[in-house]
Write a protein that binds this DNA or RNA. Structure first.
Lengths: 141, 141
DNA sequence: TTGTATGCAAACCATTTGCACTTTA
DNA sequence: TAAAGTGCAAATGGTTTGCATACAA
């Protein structure tokens, strides 16, 4: 049982829920891929393998994983919600190219420190944050 | 004719469009209010006054105003899109309280400078950006 | 065994769109 | 008067939900 599975098991136990095969399949697929995905992409990928999970279950599981801190939501301009897994990755933010749609990840410690300072100053207890820069990437510009 | 109306006129002329009463009504209402609003709130507010505008027209006008740089979209966790007007306001970012739903605005020059530096470093041409911090505000915490 | 999770299909609901009619330039 | 905008109602499509069934604890 790896980190993310233990984390999920712990969260589900705390919530009085059940660690089902579907939930594990979803979690595994999310940690197998290293990109930004939406519910449908996850569903069709799982269908390609033998064991598939209904879209409904995926939609019911994603909020759990979000709340458990196992995935993060990325707010793009699309109407579909995008997600990425969290464990085993440095914390980072996103740039989105308006031209080619590419999502570029970047990390910046001073920036993150700054955000926490602002929260302290405002006495706001941050649970999560997100920075999105929209524009034109160097290939398209 | 005030700043925002001139700006809209200029934008619409550039695009080969037409400056209609509906578009002006929408713009005026947006600049009359100083909060974060969605398409429906705008529509029902306009209905209270004598001249109302259809929801469809509002949905067709908001992207124009966005592209003209007259409004900004705020990506919350809600499924409705929120907007705020831009002209006459300092640039700022948002904190959202998970508990009471309050949206807190904050501005920070070092933070903004940092973002632009990062873009230069990555040779990414930023058109817009947005920082959202989710958590618990000092009243709720 | 018993309450929780799943799958299916139907419901939801913010947003978009087709179309006939107005209106701006 | 010709191209663009509007209102209405219908369509769209991602997400949610009710319900009967399956299953983890």
């Amino acid at each position: 049982m790896n980190d993310q599975q233990e984390e999920l098991a712990k969260y589900i136990k705390k919530m009085g829920g059940r660690l089902t095969p579907s939930r594990l399949l979803i979690l595994k697929e999310i940690y197998r891929r290293h990109d930004h995905f939406d519910a449908e992409a996850l569903c069709s990928e799982l269908q390609k393998t033998h064991k598939s999970v209904s879209l409904a279950s995926i939609y019911r599981t994603l909020p759990l994983l979000l709340d458990a801190g196992l995935i993060r939501e990325i707010k793009t301009n699309n109407k579909k919600k995008l997600y990425e897994h969290v464990l085993g990755h440095h914390h980072h933010e996103h740039m989105i190219c308006e031209e080619c749609g590419k999502i570029i990840e970047f990390g910046d410690n001073p920036l993150e420190r700054n955000i926490h300072q602002i929260c302290e100053r405002k006495r706001f207890l941050p649970k999560s944050h997100q920075i999105i820069i929209t524009g034109i990437c160097k290939e398209c510009g």
